[in-house]
Design a protein around this nucleic acid. Structure first.
Lengths: 235, 235
DNA sequence: CAAGAAGCGGAGTAGTCCTCTCCGTTTGTG
DNA sequence: CACAAACGGAGAGGACTACTCCGCTTCTTG
């Protein structure tokens, strides 16, 4: 296996050749676009084509797909943690809580690859696990602060948040290409269900789907039949 | 486990040979069990093994996988429509509405194949489309009856129901093997969000996940990286 | 402005997984 | 018992994907 020196080698080693550096940028940008649009499942061949380089070039720079994903999403995962901190600084605990959810989904709606990373795709590995660990106490704080303020129902809990992401994320996946903003409607329902006291409910955003949209959406859900949990009962 | 009404060739052709008939039953039962447990993605080889017959035998009886699924799930889809009619007969419109959701998810929690069929997997084809068409007016009625009674928020709509299935179904998929009943907690949140007026909220059922369970669950979500909307999967 | 190092492209390899076929063998039936 | 019906399961064939290899091109450097 050929050596793959520092992927971006900012310092120590001598700088990349001009064309190599240009290609590195192209690859990163292409990967960003393609992952965002079609998810982490795309092949590196596809990214290479989009970047206008050969696959070999991609593999020379990033030893495998995972390394590329890692390099690409590091900052984006930081952005989510930053979101939580921002929300925690919000004067109104409930508003902070809700806007954390909304912002989070906005990011995910704009980037399918990010969504898959957040929702536990195996590609994530360490970097994502780190991000999750960093996020956990923040989410916990967000929840208990909103509960202390009497706005969030007291029987909700920190570990419910990831599942809420799973739920609304499923709507995103299903309807994303049909009505990109539909998730707001269902997040609103969930958020209303999380309120401690139902005082002021805003009307639901986004009209319900019409028949045609619904048909398209349901077709998208099962895109393909899930690969059926392999025989292995556990890890 | 359920009844096996008229096989499929009750009249015209002459009855199957004794062993053939026995195998037909075995296959159907094995398919029921395996699809329920692992989803529609399992291979026919696997079903054959489970049934104790060769693949050839399965293919002789059912020209392809789809035909087998069709034969197997017809009655189960009817059961869901029956559920809706039952719910419509409930004296309390809100209770009818909620119990329709609950019963529906109970069925799906017990049968992963059914869940995939309901949630728009491509395998369904005609039979499922029919079932959906039959269900639509019933769901619509369930919704407007509950709204007329002032129990369901007026800005909810019939076409929201399938998406609610998608949402809660996602929780089912994620946590099914870790905490099979967790969906009840999130369905409760959603249902509380759908209430017109928040009078009597019951506390959430099912404790939130603990850290270990959460980790297992999130690992299950992205089981595999979604195959990235292919350009044209063809047919 | 050479010459050799660095980089490139993309066909090809190897691996996985799945559906469905074929045909020699076994079993049931009249 | 004869012969059609049914069986089993190896393997053909197809789809896809991650990654490698090596002859050719492009930079850099003295």
């Amino acid at each position: 296996m050929p050596v793959h020196p520092a992927p971006q080698a900012p310092s120590s080693t001598r700088p990349l050749r001009k064309d190599a550096e240009r290609n590195r940028r192209r690859i990163l940008q292409a990967a960003g676009e393609v992952f965002a649009e079609r998810g982490l499942g795309v092949t590196l061949d596809e990214i290479a084509r989009h970047a206008g380089v050969g696959v070999g070039t991609v593999y020379r720079r990033y030893p495998d797909k995972h390394a590329l994903i890692d390099a690409l999403f590091e900052e984006r995962l930081d952005a989510i943690a930053a979101l939580a901190e921002e929300a925690l600084a919000d004067a109104d605990p409930w508003h902070g809580f809700v806007s954390f959810l909304e912002r989070g989904f906005e990011l995910q709606a704009a980037d399918r690859g990010l969504k898959e990373l957040v929702c536990g795709t195996p590609h994530g590995r360490d970097r994502v696990a780190d991000a999750r660990d960093r996020l956990k106490p923040l989410a916990e704080a967000l929840v208990s602060r909103a509960q202390a303020a009497g706005a969030l129902r007291p029987d909700a809990a920190g570990p419910d948040l990831p599942l809420i992401h799973v739920m609304v994320g499923a709507v995103l996946d299903a309807s994303g290409s049909v009505r990109p903003e539909l998730w707001r409607r269902f997040l609103a329902i969930v958020v209303d269900g999380l309120r401690a006291e139902p005082g002021a409910r805003a009307p639901l955003p986004e009209a319900p789907l019409d028949d045609g949209e619904l048909a398209d959406t349901m077709r998208a859900v099962g895109g393909r039949t899930a690969p059926a949990t392999t025989a292995r009962p556990a890890r």
